[in-house]
Design a protein around this nucleic acid. Structure first.
Lengths: 133, 133
DNA sequence: CGGGATCCCAAGCGATACTG
DNA sequence: CAGTATCGCTTGGGATCCCG
């Protein structure tokens, strides 16, 4: 009677708010930014240079989102001209481990995925041929 | 001289193909599907019932994508009517650990994120008030 | 049962121009 | 330097109808 209907499923359920959080934290640029900020704090244009592909709009949006979620901290130094520094928060640091786990999975299994894709696409093309081109 | 320009960055670089793979494996429905298939193989309409929010189109698309990437395997039992079974592949099983790491991060730190959002939104509203409504 | 084919919309993002 | 504002495209995904 330690478990009810589910066969000891797995520990966690995956709800809509989980998905939302994942989307915000693993979106197109978050990982890049976290990469940079984990090594050192950086200013806005430093990040732009470090991640050349990001547009300023997306960089702003992603930083705001990460700041809102408590993952990065923004501090304004009122000098001339203004200096704004972004750094990773304590909460943000706890995100490294799970993200790195993901990246390591890609590093070790990415080649397997590539091979699987090759097989899949070959078979698809082959099946297409069988059906008269 | 054990390190060059980068300050021993971190082990992995995050390229476009990494991003693509992440998108395919962590997309809106993949996690749900993997959750289900990790516990037991399932048929198409079983998955639909297990994940009521998914549309048939998205379920088909996601399963195809996961199959192409070698994460799930599809087998057709030619009976009357046809029976199609999806199950997780060995490669797919290796994905559990990193994904669970992510889900556990959410489980343990999700509340922190919520509080951070509350603070951020409050400050935003407050700052808005200071600027004349 | 297990899909395929269409239509459509909102969100994400890039490109570009402007600002305190 | 560190953004904001607009425009427009591309995509993911929902809704719906149809099929072997």
């Amino acid at each position: 009677m330690t478990e009810t209907s589910r066969p000891a499923a797995h520990p966690l359920e995956f709800t809509a708010s989980h998905r939302e959080l994942l989307d915000q934290v693993l979106d197109k640029w978050s990982v890049h930014i976290l990469d940079e900020l984990c090594e050192r704090p950086a200013r806005f244009n430093e990040l732009r240079r470090a991640i050349p592909a990001v547009t300023q709009k997306s960089l702003t949006a992603t930083l705001r989102r990460l700041e809102r979620n408590g993952i990065v901290e923004r501090s304004v130094v009122r000098s001339r001209p203004v200096a704004v520094e972004y750094r990773i928060s304590p909460l943000g640091k706890t995100l490294r481990a799970p993200i790195d786990a993901l990246l390591e999975w890609i590093a070790t299994h990415g080649a397997d995925v590539d091979r699987a894709r090759g097989r899949f696409d070959d078979e698809a093309e082959h099946d297409l041929g069988r059906l008269g081109r």
